[in-house]
């Protein structure tokens, strides 16, 4: 009997300890490549933790964006850093007693405070569930992201765009990746890319009623984009200018337009009548999926498509 309650606790303890251990190893490892790989492993373990905590939507986002895409960005940057810099920087094994003494009370205080918080309070779950029928979706997380607190999601799409603008403004040249193309990779891509696009479409569609949604679908699309880029695929210059920019902003634009459509009939910004809500949310999520995917792939590219290296 005791073993039944003990087993999950044992699992959770192991998971928790592994998280801390992986994070510590990732931060203190002297080799940066090893550090990044450990960080990716940490991200995947976090995804597992989210599943354990009944947060499958978060798990998907973490695995694809937090571990996958961030890891890819880190590795790509490391490769470029190493290519540009022949000399090695001094290894950093640092242990500062002063810093530890300052941080120790911080962590104890934080732990103490966290333990005083009530557990098992439903928070806003009740309100969310009560109004779910009028939101047009049945997945509560999607309802929060696209309806109740859609304004946050709108701003967050703007944040993605700003990051891309910033990266482009630095003027870096897109990374060349010709080294990787070959017959096996090309054939694999011909199978994988359509599959990934289908998975993205599925996640988008199913997100209304089950774990999934625009961010998860968008990140799968982004992964497909990264694969294409790694294989040396380049965007034809015809599309690299205005059409690309239009796709990039389509998420924000669709969201804003959907938000103001009903203002003339007396509703608030981002308020949808219940009969239209489901369709609107799907429309917004479709546009958002596209722009999120392209933005993530563009962030990986690191430079504005169409730019050429000046010799």
């Amino acid at each position: 009997m005791a073993a039944m309650t003990l087993l999950p606790l044992l699992f959770d303890t192991l998971l928790g300890l592994s998280l801390i251990w992986l994070a510590w190893r990732a931060l203190t490892s002297t080799d940066l490549f090893q550090a990044i790989v450990l960080f990716i492993a940490f991200g995947l373990l976090m995804a597992l933790t989210w599943v354990r905590l009944d947060a499958p939507d978060v798990a998907m986002a973490e695995a694809a964006i937090g571990a996958g895409l961030t890891g890819a960005l880190l590795l790509a940057t490391l490769a470029r850093l190493k290519a540009n810099n022949k000399t090695k920087s001094a290894p950093e094994k640092k242990f500062s007693l002063l810093l530890t003494l300052i941080i120790l009370p911080v962590v104890t205080g934080l732990v103490y405070v966290v333990l005083t918080l009530p557990q098992n309070t439903p928070g806003l779950a009740i309100l969310v569930a009560e109004n779910l029928k009028t939101t047009g979706v049945t997945n509560p997380v999607t309802a929060v992201l696209l309806n109740y607190r859609g304004y946050d999601t709108l701003l967050e799409l703007a944040v993605l765009l700003v990051a891309l603008l910033g990266v482009w403004s630095f003027g870096g040249v897109p990374k060349p990746h010709e080294a990787y193309s070959g017959p096996v990779l090309n054939m694999l891509l011909r199978l994988l890319i359509p599959l990934l696009i289908m998975v993205a479409g599925y996640l988008l569609w199913v997100g209304a009623n089950a774990p999934g949604g625009a961010f998860q679908a968008g990140s799968v699309l982004g992964a497909a984009g990264v694969l294409l880029l790694l294989a040396g695929w380049q965007l034809s210059t015809r599309f690299a200018e205005l059409p690309l920019r239009i796709i990039l902003v389509s998420g924000v634009v669709m969201f804003t337009m959907a938000g103001i459509v009903f203002i003339v009939s007396g509703r608030q910004f981002l308020e949808y009548p219940p009969s239209f809500a489901g369709a609107f949310i799907l429309l917004i999520e479709a546009a958002a999926t596209l722009s999120i995917g392209i933005t993530l792939a563009a962030l990986f590219l690191g430079g504005r498509p169409g730019l050429r290296r000046h010799k």
């Binding site: 806003l124 309100l127 109004n131 109740y148 859609g150 304004y151 608030q268 910004f269 981002l270 308020e271």
Partner: peptide
Amino acid sequence: IGGWAAPL
């Protein structure tokens, strides 16, 4: 926003 009053 969205017609949803706080806290929702």
